[in-house]
Design a protein around this nucleic acid. Structure first.
Lengths: 148, 148
DNA sequence: CGAGTTACCTGTCAAATGATAGTAATCTAC
DNA sequence: GTAGATTACTATCATTTGACAGGTAACTCG
């Protein structure tokens, strides 16, 4: 069956827009407190969403190979944004938690990005609809990768 | 006035999702014909959308400073994907056009990305709604930058 | 115990990116 | 026609990122 012509073009534009906006957001590098590289930001946000996660799990979610994840993690720890804690059941395992400082920085980031987007999407329902769609896309892409 | 608490969190999640998906799309580096770096892809897609654009204009749209844009452009030209043409009215100015080869490669990219997204967003209306929202965000962010 | 596995980490290399400085050609305005 | 602005470009540097090879400690299972 395959995707029909118009839907294909639509989906392409969707991907295109996501990539373009992502670039804009990076470029508008909100000087939110600590300066984060894009990769560090991705790791930080994941740990914030999933406190208590392990490096292996987080690396998978962010699609980083463990060596690179470890590097990003080290920097975040040096900046006092992430705390490592030993897993009581398995001493090999490390649990990751955002620090309070991370919470403050993320709030700054939230402020900055929200302000950027509020003019474009003031409507609550529209924002929620977009989030629903994008959430589905995100989990779909994630699943696809772990499958391969 | 300011953005209310919940809307702020929503918009933050929106930004977050966009960044995460963007990372996934890059990671799923569809080996579409010529291999493009993320930046080259951004430039290529812009030129495809706006054939006849000038380097200055395209650099602004992709938020690159001219030196880096020039580098990306050179690579795209070496790969035979972009053609430069002198502006008849102003000899300083260069006009950029996608080549036929670029069209083919973009079609591969369109295939690959569309396939990735189709499972997540099979619904036409939903895709269009998301596109509308994201288009608005994109032009908003772009305008914001040129303003500053 | 001892081999194999798992989780995490370091070191290192190459490529991609962001930014600055500076050059050359052309145009504009006086 | 000359000073200054505009357009496009090159050279170069530091940082970020992606990938690989390998190492240590802890766990599992016979």
């Amino acid at each position: 069956m395959g995707v029909d012509e118009k839907q294909r073009a639509r989906l392409f534009e969707l991907a295109d827009l996501i990539l373009a906006i992502s670039r804009h957001l990076h470029a508008a590098k909100t000087d939110a407190a600590e300066s984060w590289t894009p990769l560090e930001a991705a790791v930080m946000r994941y740990i914030d969403h999933q406190p208590g996660t392990t490096p292996t799990q987080a690396a998978e979610a962010t699609q980083l190979i463990s060596s690179n994840f470890s590097r990003a993690l080290r920097k975040l720890e040096q900046k006092g944004l992430v705390r490592r804690e030993a897993d009581p059941g398995d001493a090999r395992r490390v649990r990751l938690y955002p620090t309070q400082k991370a919470g403050e920085n993320l709030r700054h980031l939230e402020d900055a990005w929200s302000r950027l987007l509020d003019e474009a999407v003031p409507d609550t329902a529209e924002a929620e609809a977009a989030i629903t769609t994008l959430r589905r896309i995100e989990s779909q892409l994630l699943a696809r990768v772990s499958r391969s």
